[in-house]
Design a protein around this nucleic acid. Structure first.
Lengths: 136, 136
DNA sequence: ATTCTTCTTTAGAATAATTATAAAAAACTA
DNA sequence: TAGTTTTTTATAATTATTCTAAAGAAGAAT
């Protein structure tokens, strides 16, 4: 359970003003047992459900982008009509159930080390992500 | 160099009528030394450049979807404003240069075997794709 | 060839995710 | 409290993609 004060601290440390909306979004995103996957729309609805506060869709977009930029959220590379984000920013991979449009975490240990034996001059590797598509 | 007749054959075998537009798109897509990555817009422009024939944007969409469904094109899982396709339908992976928005093939051999040590009940693996993001 | 049926193309409208805008509100500073 | 900067917000703009329905092309039957 992360306190409001902690969120305020963290936001300040990231030079993001701790607005009511941002604190609320933090609470929805990071006060959970497990990390989770969401779309902008998911998050918009989750925030809307709360009685205390609401945030406009534009704010959800702004905040998610700000958090992503700061490294508090990870974008999951899949082709979908909506962009998926992940509160698990550690190095890991995903299953994607194409039929149900559902993402499932895949731990690094469940994939084993991936050794990229090719390099591109002048470029370095930023991330290595595995996407495993599932079917019935 | 693949002949028009061959394209017509292949289209017929796939129960796709060999229209002028489809044959032209085949020529643009498959009559090349190397496989390549493209967006709908790229393809639209490539077809437009040709003097002999032009195809509407809707036809480009229709055809790409049809070819994808038949397994002649592969969709590359990345988050971009546009969807990328690949004429290389063999099992392989990609580098994505985020800055230049450029895709580069990564052979299976350059990645080594990927062993997914987790399974989801009732589901089987359809594909395993690695995306390596590059930065400067 | 001619007619009939089915599939395809096409322009344009519709949809939907995302981004841009600019004024009002909130947060910070002095 | 007044002044400055950042943020929120409603709304408009943008853009990739899908839908629609009419015209055109391809294939089949005669």
């Amino acid at each position: 359970m992360i306190s409001k004060t902690e969120f305020i601290q963290k936001l300040r440390n990231s030079s993001l003003r701790p607005t009511k909306q941002r604190i609320d979004i933090c609470d929805v995103l990071f006060n959970r047992e497990k990390t989770f996957h969401f779309t902008i729309n998911d998050l918009f609805n989750l925030v809307k459900e709360r009685k205390d506060q609401k945030a406009s869709l534009a704010t959800i977009y702004n905040t998610v982008h700000a958090f992503h930029k700061k490294g508090y959220l990870k974008e999951i590379p899949i082709n979908s009509n909506q962009t998926y984000f992940d509160t698990n920013v550690t190095d890991h991979h995903h299953f994607f159930d194409v039929k149900e449009e559902r993402l499932i975490d895949l731990k690094n240990e469940d994939v084993g080390p991936i050794d990229i034996q090719k390099s591109i001059p002048g470029k370095k590797i930023k991330s290595v992500e595995v996407l495993v598509k599932l079917e019935d």
